[in-house]
Design a binder for these strands. Sequence first.
DNA 1: CCATTATTGTAATTTTACAACAATGAATTC
DNA 2: GAATTCATTGTTGTAAAATTACAATAATGG
Lengths: 286, 286
Amino acid sequence: MSQNILERLKSNPSCLSKSERKVAQVILEDPNKAIRSSIASLAKAANVSEPTVNRFCRSLDCTGFPDFKLKLAQCLATGTPYVSRNVEASDNVEEYSSKIFEATMSAISDAKRAIDPNALHRTVDALAQARRIEIYGLGASGSVAQDAQHKLFRLNTPCVAYTDVLQQRMAAAATKPGDVVLIISNTGRTIALVETARIARDSGATVITITQPHSPLANESHILLGVESPENTDIYTPMTSRIVHLTVIDVLATGVILRHGPEFQSHLKRIKAALADTRFKLPDTD
Amino acid sequence: MSQNILERLKSNPSCLSKSERKVAQVILEDPNKAIRSSIASLAKAANVSEPTVNRFCRSLDCTGFPDFKLKLAQCLATGTPYVSRNVEASDNVEEYSSKIFEATMSAISDAKRAIDPNALHRTVDALAQARRIEIYGLGASGSVAQDAQHKLFRLNTPCVAYTDVLQQRMAAAATKPGDVVLIISNTGRTIALVETARIARDSGATVITITQPHSPLANESHILLGVESPENTDIYTPMTSRIVHLTVIDVLATGVILRHGPEFQSHLKRIKAALADTRFKLPDTD
DNA sequence: CCATTATTGTAATTTTACAACAATGAATTC
DNA sequence: GAATTCATTGTTGTAAAATTACAATAATGG
């Protein structure tokens, strides 16, 4: 439905008149200030009359100035790229920690919007029916693969994660139709993984990837769970993308569990119960 | 900074008077309607006077009614579900995937508010000065520990993750003053880890934990990075909490990098560059 | 039970958003 | 080149909205 006022402002569109563009510019300079100012102060800041500001709002499919402020505020809150502030060397603890938390939330929010429910559905199908599940990842995605194994092994289906290139290649060559190979990669450009995907394909396995769309790895997969990672990986190692990957895996695991139905949950409870003796008891019953 | 009006509304806090609670209730019934209505219509809907609505806003740290509407609108836009809905057996793909994404975001948002900047600061200090860093985790936290190693080993400080109880105990016994032991646990009640923490303490290491506050493990630590995990772990394995743990580790790694200053970044670039040949090149220069 | 305080409503005031209309200016036509 | 048309912008005025100041009421404690 309604969306992204900021995008349309930045692209300086033809639907705005000269003075309306002045308004747009003032707003873009400090959107967070704009949502707190009245129509009068904004008009003065842009050197135009108040009704001009109002007409400006109408041009953007708002019913009026308050409605515009509302939409702009929501746009800012969703963590659109416009506000995705980068960590700076001068930041103190509060600042960089806030930024990282926000960037992470924003990435999850983006993924939520971008993920293809159909691909999820088909993946859950494939996992639920798999004879065997293999999970491959390297580098930062290695621990994601291991986490995925930790989640999926409860499903009564044999399930292994490999984080070693050679083991992955051998395991991929050993797969058969009915097996599912889940490959996780941030860039989708790691040569070894693309080759392994090809090997698994040739062996007849169903290849599912959690990776960057339109990447070489994505092109090798039967089912693609696309996750865009716009982050700058030059200096900082991929942070948000691997968290999105984990969330996708949560969705998959939950989907398979739901698919198995209620009687399956006693099976999960038993697994959980096996841990009880490793823990200190809770202080009280609650 | 301040955030999540909805959270505070639904927890029906003591800082509101009787009629102010009536206002809160009306708003919670349909928040999306509330952000579009005037103070007058809202007052009528709640059967209170207009100034009461205004005072209600002030009680919630807003400068007035418009400011309140703005914050509420932003709160709604972030998609943070104010009633963290649980996955139900009847959910279809879209539904449970939405719920999981939302629950994850909500958990990160909560953690952002709850995390103690002072503890973060001291942890960054300790990590930056550490002679050696050891990271321990078990189960789901095992892959978190491994991910942490993957992040922290770039810091020029020897850094290992152990996900095996015996290795952890031996390594903990071998630590010395100046060493930092980072222990990650969802519940904070795993007996083995609590014992290991004690061994590390006795050896003189600085014990830092990412875990549930007020837990046995938290009590054994020199520095506690507290993460509440209200989630029901009866059936589903901890999902959101380990993602929060990872985010905290991102913050720590970033903090240490910032602490080391700009000349350190060339060191990181070299590490990154070592990966270049393992990847397919990007289609174009951009 | 009275004094004190907190809570709520009434009325007045200020601020804000918007509509109706007038003015300006550019483009087009004769 | 003047006249006409159209789009754009500003001026004035008004209704609505938000807020203040203050009075009335209810709640609390000695």
